[in-house]
Simulated assay, not measured.
Amino acid sequence: MGIKTFITRVFTWWNGQTLGTQLFTARRGVKVGEDAEGNVYYRNKDDSKRWVIYDGYAEASRVSPEWHGWLHRSWNETPSERPLTRKAWEKPHLPNLTGSAAAYAPPGSLRRGATERRDYESWSPE
């Protein structure tokens, strides 16, 4: 591990697990599963704590509904042990893209390449 990686792991929580979380997980964590995004889920031996180690940037909306329910004790079985039944009308889980380059931009938005906004007239006190 290089010095930059070491400093990043000690002081930043948003780039994956910190050094403290890694040590705690190694000592007390029991791996219970992994999701499609590569996030790994753990609990301690008496199941009084549950946590996730994100694969990459730590963004809570990257946790799927199945694992969210397990993390927040809505059910005790992991999605690996008891998968949720899906309805035909349900859409697949998508992370929140707000603040990213892939975020929604409405028509007329400067982010879509418009040179000026034409979808409304601005109010002017007269």
Rank of each mutant, 00 (worst) to 15 (best):
M1I: 07
K4E: 14
F6A: 03
F6M: 04
I7R: 06
I7P: 04
R9D: 14
V10H: 04
F11P: 07
T12R: 12
N15G: 09
N15A: 10
G16T: 02
G16I: 00
Q17I: 14
Q17N: 11
L19P: 06
L23I: 15
F24I: 12
F24D: 11
F24Q: 13
R27K: 12
G29E: 03
V30F: 00
G33L: 07
G38N: 03
N39S: 01
V40Q: 03
Y42D: 02
Y42A: 01
Y42C: 02
R43F: 02
N44Y: 00
D46Y: 02
K49L: 14
W51L: 00
W51P: 00
V52W: 00
V52P: 00
I53T: 07
Y54P: 01
E59L: 11
E59D: 15
R62N: 03
V63A: 03
S64D: 02
S64Q: 01
H68D: 11
H68K: 09
G69T: 04
L71K: 03
S74C: 07
S74G: 07
T78A: 01
E81L: 11
T85A: 07
T85Y: 07
R86L: 13
R86P: 05
A88N: 06
A88Y: 06
E90F: 04
K91P: 05
P92H: 10
L97S: 11
T98F: 10
S100I: 07
S100A: 05
A102P: 11
P106I: 09
P106Y: 15
S109M: 08
L110F: 15
L110Y: 15
R111Y: 15
R112T: 06
A114D: 15
A114W: 15
R118P: 07
D119K: 01
Y120W: 13
E121P: 06
S124A: 09
E126M: 09
